[in-house]
Simulated scan of single mutants.
Amino acid sequence: HNLLMSGSPGAGKSMLAQRLPSILPPLTPRELLEVSMIHSVAGILAGGALTDRRPFRAPHHSASMPALVGGGVHARPGEISLAHNGVLFLDELPEFQAQVLDSLRQPIETGEVAIARANHRVVYPARFQLVAAMNPCRCGSANEPGFACRRAPNERCVAQYLGRLSGPLLDRFDLLVEVPAVSAADLMTPPPREGSAEVAARVAAARRIQLQRYADLGLMSVACNAAAPANLVEEIAQADDAGLRLLRDAAERMRLTARGYHRVLKLARTLADLDGEGPVRRAHLAEALSYRGAPDRAAAAA
């Protein structure tokens, strides 16, 4: 599921993204073959070595469209294909060129990218998890109590900075998470009881449930709920009556698009899988809906 983190500088957004691969399940043999073939074409398969660790790509915000999507004289794969079956991390998301970001919209939906040149056309796989991080505004302190932006009222500054991102791109994020600043007292507290190893075990169990679900449906190429076809979403994420009423009311109030509606259902299905439960309950839908509201409030403030 695509994730956008917003918070003050130094809150730990980049660190969290870099730790994400440590809780992801290892590559399956099929996925490993796909990743190895792409890296071989790109010429970055060092010594023919293979690893079952999922790719993690973090291009700089100055990256061009050919670098991110792919292209050049020989139509080589870009960062989105090198992140296939792994994570593409875009730090300082609004600092990327708007045209470059919008070029991600189609690969996110289709899971592949077609590079057309005068003499040939190449299609590369690009099924990746998009993880992005951004400050709430250019100065990064708009959400801090008592802070007053010199350039404009805080709300307008936030809205202008968020305006660098198109609505269709934001609609493709399943989770919009606000990351609060970390105080010195937080840093001195004991570590949590649940570490990366425990979380990775829960994630692996949920992924096994999803692999079996789509294998039973004859969809061997689908490995997770986020990649489920739209025509199967309501079947695999069938909720109870209370959940359906909540989803119907929330969809009208939040003005969810058809894509947003299906993404909420997919995320609720994943939350139920992480809990080890069969049906999608009202609590899962409520949590999935809670992850779609943060940037909307900033845009409304404009």
Rank of each mutant, 00 (worst) to 15 (best):
L3E: 13
A11H: 11
S14V: 10
M15Y: 15
L16T: 13
A17M: 12
Q18D: 11
R19K: 13
P21M: 08
L33D: 14
L33G: 12
I38D: 07
I38Q: 02
G48N: 14
L50G: 00
P55I: 07
P55A: 10
P59V: 08
P59N: 06
H60D: 04
S64T: 15
L68D: 08
L68R: 06
G70M: 01
R76V: 03
E79N: 08
E79I: 08
S81V: 12
L82C: 09
L82S: 09
V87K: 03
E92A: 08
P94S: 05
F96L: 11
F96V: 14
F96K: 11
Q99W: 04
Q99V: 05
V100C: 11
L101F: 11
S103H: 12
S103Q: 12
G111Y: 04
G111K: 06
V113L: 04
A116Q: 13
A118F: 05
N119M: 10
V122T: 13
P125L: 03
M134T: 13
C137K: 09
R138L: 09
C139M: 08
G140V: 06
S141A: 11
C149Y: 06
P153K: 13
E155T: 08
V158Y: 00
G163L: 00
R172I: 11
R172D: 09
L176F: 08
V177N: 01
V177D: 02
V182E: 01
S183V: 05
S183N: 10
D186C: 00
R193N: 00
R193C: 02
G195I: 06
S196L: 13
E198S: 06
A201Q: 14
V203E: 12
A204G: 09
A206D: 06
R207P: 02
L211I: 05
Y214F: 15
L217F: 00
A223G: 01
A228Y: 02
Q238H: 13
Q238R: 14
G243F: 10
L247F: 15
E252P: 00
M254L: 15
R259Y: 09
G260R: 03
K266C: 01
K266H: 01
R269Q: 05
T270Y: 01
L271A: 06
L271C: 03
D273R: 09
V280H: 11
R281M: 13
R282T: 14
R282W: 07
E287G: 01
S290E: 07
Y291S: 05
D296I: 06
R297N: 00
R297F: 12
A299H: 13
